[in-house]
Design a binder for these strands. Sequence first.
DNA 1: TCTAGCGTAGAAACCGATGTCTATCGAATG
DNA 2: CATTCGATAGACATCGGTTTCTACGCTAGA
Lengths: 347, 347
Amino acid sequence: MNADRATVRDVAARAGVSPSTVSRVIKGDYPVAQSTRTRVLRAMRELDYVLNVHARALSGASTKMVAFVLDDVTGPSFAYVAKGVEQQATAEGRLCMVCATNGDPARELAVVEAMREQRADAVILVGGGTLDDAYRERMSHFAHALDKAGSRLVLCGRPPLGDDVPTTVVEYDNEGGAYAMTSHLLSQGHRHIALIGADHPGQASTTKLDRVRGFVRAHESFGVPYDPDLIVPAGFGRADGHTAARRLITLGAQFTAVFAATDMVAIGVLAALREAGLRVPEDVSLAGYDDIPFAADLSPGLTTVRIPTEELGRTAVRLALDRRQSQHVVLGTHIVVRGSVGPATPR
Amino acid sequence: MNADRATVRDVAARAGVSPSTVSRVIKGDYPVAQSTRTRVLRAMRELDYVLNVHARALSGASTKMVAFVLDDVTGPSFAYVAKGVEQQATAEGRLCMVCATNGDPARELAVVEAMREQRADAVILVGGGTLDDAYRERMSHFAHALDKAGSRLVLCGRPPLGDDVPTTVVEYDNEGGAYAMTSHLLSQGHRHIALIGADHPGQASTTKLDRVRGFVRAHESFGVPYDPDLIVPAGFGRADGHTAARRLITLGAQFTAVFAATDMVAIGVLAALREAGLRVPEDVSLAGYDDIPFAADLSPGLTTVRIPTEELGRTAVRLALDRRQSQHVVLGTHIVVRGSVGPATPR
DNA sequence: TCTAGCGTAGAAACCGATGTCTATCGAATG
DNA sequence: CATTCGATAGACATCGGTTTCTACGCTAGA
């Protein structure tokens, strides 16, 4: 009647052995006579036996799960990191949990807490990251707690929490990419470059700060002064870029190139430029950041900075599960030249 | 020394109560004196106690987890379904596991098996779906097994397995969208429409079949014969569209419009058309399917069919967790008119 | 022949939280 | 004053595998 699910005990009874023996057949790390094994396997098949991972986890074994925490599943670059994580997790025999935070630090902390309850082998945080002190402290606490429990907190594409905090850090050279792209624009003769997507006054984002830093450093290297008015704060989305660019144009700002902090922003900027009757790259050059898949399909193709997204995700899982490897890695970025940047022309 | 993690017992000892009482404080469904509760809560805080979900799951409680199985995390439409699933799961207090199958039916079956081990509250399969008999049979078996265990198999954007198989089905009107778009093209005067991304000979995909069906039915409604040579099999990716379109052009096929089976295919087709010196929509009209976010950002904007992706994901979770609701739903699709389709012009 | 050793299998404790069943205290009722 | 009920809390079995620790049968070496 109550068929429910078969347990080790049921299988044992059917095969005429003890539960211990069934368990040993399942794990396979202990000698079991061939004939016994065969009988047990048959019983398992006949009863459609399915292991209970919770029972297994309870008696000490690893949960074989990694958790992945991101802002938004639909974010073009995040999705690729997720792919890398999923791939590597699968390769290492792990399952993968995904949680979206929608950029809410409070929710992020809640999610990490939930992952502690799940006893995940690793908790991978990707993107963004606030600089808020209380937040950092709570996160450090989690890092220590996870570490003590044999798990690991991984910061992926965000800066370390501090030297004494046991975390795995996988970054990419955010500032270097911005530096390279800005240099590229400067070497094309641009002297008035707008940076759209710098920091909002309120929320400090390290990603944004780094990109601004690279922008500034390149100007310094070239001995070109930059116009603070052309460094405009904005979000990381298409709409943010569109709004910011339109305002810049309306205000009559003078610039021959736009460096958008993300490709999504660049797409918004592109639309705003078009609406204003400006051609790219003839009137204004446009550069992005992230090299999302569609960057190549815009017309003109978007010149942008490539981030090794999948690699980032794969590395995060690999390092977290093998502590013998270095626990702080910085992956490189490089610019991808397409059609959206041309030589500067006076306006 | 061995700090490890605190258990209910540790908390109980520290608070000077029994484990049962601690458990009651945690669940909160049983009367506990205010003073006792306070002491227990303090002990929990002091010991940094974290619940063990596996122990809880073992003693009968639900696992509060839904599993989400898709082809590829980076697929533009899948990501949105994932977002819907994640949102609704969170809203219902569930965590969310994500597994990618890379379109491999064998891996899909393996993943579903893993989800049975996890005792997930629901297992949501999205996209694709083979028509292969052995596969269907195995999947039906899983559906029954999950059902018997109080869980649920959800088919999202794919056809039912059969009437006697206990599943939740959330579809969208695939054929209707293709019908509407084809009608739109026909009403613009197009009489030679290429359908790129029909079925590959080997692998039968219901999604593709439905889209072809809508295409054919629209022609029949309009009394316009269609050219079988213009129905070309192709994958669902950008490269597939590019290759297929280039071959069509090289072969000198006559057509004034292309209906791409997905927006990704459309993007590939667009590139191929451009390379051949054909303008869109002046020389050739182009329509896609899915309305991925970038469809609006192409130039010209891509006329395409909108699928209620997030809604699909949200509905899947909602129905799976509340069996009182109808377990078979078909969500509507509609065409989105942008600039890539124009009136037919003789070539 | 006796014992050491190997291969194999069972009994029972254990992981951590839950829930049932029982017990106690104080207050309220007859 | 005795009894009963309500509020509260503890003891203990339980969920389903895992893992010692022990034991049996058999062969090989002393």
